[in-house]
């Protein structure tokens, strides 16, 4: 049985679900996440809660792009940069190390590009017709 064909979609969907969960948590309880907003962003005058909600919308949107396989490379690249930023701001903490793993996962998705279950592929096929 060839299991290799599942590797790309499983990774893509797994990372998407993580992002969707985090995004949903941030939308429903932004006050629990406000403490994670770096001080330099708060000092720019934006309320931490607003930042969390903006971040949630970003993660939910790109999470949905990724799970459906829409603009897969673009979404994974943006998410990779975003997660790398979080990793750097968190530093060598358990959360930072964990986010480093997520960054590598998004990098792998970016390098792989869309798999055969992605909407990107469907649109690609249609454009050839």
């Amino acid at each position: 049985m060839n299991l290799e064909k599942f590797s790309k979609p499983v990774l893509r969907m797994g990372l998407s679900l993580v992002l969707l969960w985090f995004g949903f948590q941030q939308i429903t309880s932004p006050e629990n996440w406000a403490g994670f907003i770096p001080q330099f962003i708060i000092s720019m005058g934006t309320a931490a809660k607003t930042m969390v909600i903006g971040n949630a919308i970003f993660e939910l949107t790109l999470g949905l792009f990724l799970i459906t396989g829409l603009y897969t490379r673009f979404a994974s690249a943006l998410l990779g940069i975003h997660i790398l930023g979080i990793t750097i701001s968190m530093g060598m903490t358990p959360t930072g190390i964990r986010d480093f793993g997520l960054f590598v996962a998004s990098l792998v998705i970016f390098l792989n590009g869309p798999d055969k279950y992605c909407l990107d592929k469907k649109f690609e096929k249609n454009s050839y017709k």
């Binding site: 909600i53 919308i57 949107t61 949905l64 603009y71 909407l119 649109f123």
Partner: peptide, 18 residues
């Protein structure tokens, strides 16, 4: 194109639900 429309739709959906 349809792909871009779908992307906008997803974005609008997220904004609306949020």
């Amino acid at each position: 194109n349809k792909k871009l429309m779908l992307a906008f739709l997803i974005f609008a959906l997220v904004i609306g639900i949020s």
